[in-house]
Every structure is written in structure tokens, then in C-alpha cells.
């Protein structure tokens, strides 16, 4: 009994001291982007938020399209990227179009979780269906590997601070700003204006 207690105590102490909340020494989080201005803005915004609030290093990785980014996410080559509900449902899950945005988000989120071990965080707040030319409402939201969330328990709460923060008008302004300024700077300034960093 005493040995069991000692073993449990040792395990507790090791885990208590050895697992930083979100500041793993040497660990770099990899965020995917499909390279459009809109995707780059969102990727930089998440990267800046993580880096500024936790000090964790973040690297952006560019892909040609959603299919490539999704494949990299499944293979654990990246930790997260921003996907659109319409793309997730149509291209990735090969599902039927749905008109109801909240129902679409719920269904995509559930199937990603059950079938792919991937977690959809809160939608960022705008609809990109027209710009993506897809025939169902397309809300962007960060999609994260489940094991990444286990390694960094505070990550979901942090990224969800962006939930609903970027409406249609805001993304249009950000894209406009990105025409003449560095995307990273645009993302940084937006986070500052929202008092998030």
C-alpha cells in the first residue's frame, strides 16, 4: 500500500513539474494556411495570439488547397488550420449541402470529432460562401488535432477568444489593409484593437 502511495505521489510530482500549461520548451506549433489573403490573415491572427499570450513558437506552413492542408493535419504534419464549414462538409466529408449554418457547423464538428479525431473550435464570425463560390453557408473556424489540445490544455480556450470576433465588415477591412501592409502586422493590429494581446 505504501509503495502504491509512493508511486502515485512520484507520478503526481513528475507530472506537476514537468508539464507546462502551454509553454513547452522547444515545441513549435505548426499552423496551416491555403495561401489566400483571407487564410493568411486568419493563420497569422491565431499565430500571433498564441505567441503573444503564451510565448510558444508558431510556424506557418502553406498548402495549395484545403485537401492538402487537411491531409497534413490528419498526418500530424501541422497542428491546426482554419477550414470552412462548407468545404469540410462538401470536399472533406463528401456530405450533402445544408442550408442552416448552425446545423451545418454542428454536423461537421460532430463528424470530424467522431471520424477524424479533429476538433472544430468556435467559428470566427463571418461567412465566406460567396468568396469561395460554394453552394452552402461557409463559416471559417480553426480545426485542431485532438492530441494537440491534450498537449496544450489551454489552447482551445485561447483560440476561442477569436470566436465571433471577425464579422463580414471586419474581414473585408482586414483584407483591404493586407493589400498594402504585411499580413502579420494587420493581424497583430487587429488583436491589439480587440485588446486580446
Amino acid at each position: 500500500m505504501k509503495n502504491i502511495f509512493n508511486t502515485l505521489l512520484l507520478l503526481f510530482l513528475v507530472s506537476f513539474f514537468a508539464l507546462p500549461a502551454l509553454a513547452c520548451v522547444g515545441k513549435t506549433l505548426q499552423i496551416g494556411t491555403t495561401g489566400s489573403v483571407q487564410q493568411n490573415i486568419m493563420a497569422h491572427m491565431i499565430a500571433e495570439l498564441i505567441s503573444e499570450r503564451t510565448g510558444t513558437s508558431v510556424k506557418l506552413v502553406e498548402f495549395a488547397n484545403s485537401a492538402e492542408a487537411h491531409a497534413a493535419l490528419v498526418k500530424a504534419d501541422i497542428d491546426l488550420y482554419v477550414e470552412y464549414t462548407g468545404i469540410g462538409q462538401g470536399l472533406i466529408l463528401q456530405g450533402q449541402p445544408m442550408a442552416d449554418a448552425s446545423e451545418l457547423y454542428k454536423q461537421v464538428k460532430d463528424r470530424y470529432n467522431q471520424d477524424l479525431n479533429l476538433i472544430w473550435l468556435q467559428p470566427l464570425g463571418f461567412d465566406a460562401a460567396s468568396s469561395l463560390k460554394v453552394n452552402m453557408p461557409a463559416e471559417p473556424a480553426p480545426v485542431v488535432r485532438k492530441d494537440t489540445l491534450k498537449k496544450f490544455p489551454a489552447l482551445a480556450r485561447l483560440i476561442n477568444k477569436l470566436g465571433g470576433k471577425i464579422d463580414q465588415q471586419a474581414i473585408a477591412q482586414l483584407e483591404q489593409q493586407a493589400m498594402t501592409a504585411e499580413v502579420a502586422k494587420v493581424a497583430h493590429n487587429f488583436l491589439k484593437s480587440q485588446r486580446l494581446i
Binding site: A21, L22, A23, R53, T54, G55, A154, R157, L158, K192
Partner: peptide, 10 residues
């Protein structure tokens, strides 16, 4: 700049 002191997320 911008911060003399900054607190982390938690």
C-alpha cells in the same frame, strides 16, 4: 514596448 510587464494566459 509595448509592455514593461506582461502576464501569460493563466
Amino acid at each position: 514596448i509595448p509592455y514593461q510587464i506582461k502576464m501569460g494566459l493563466k
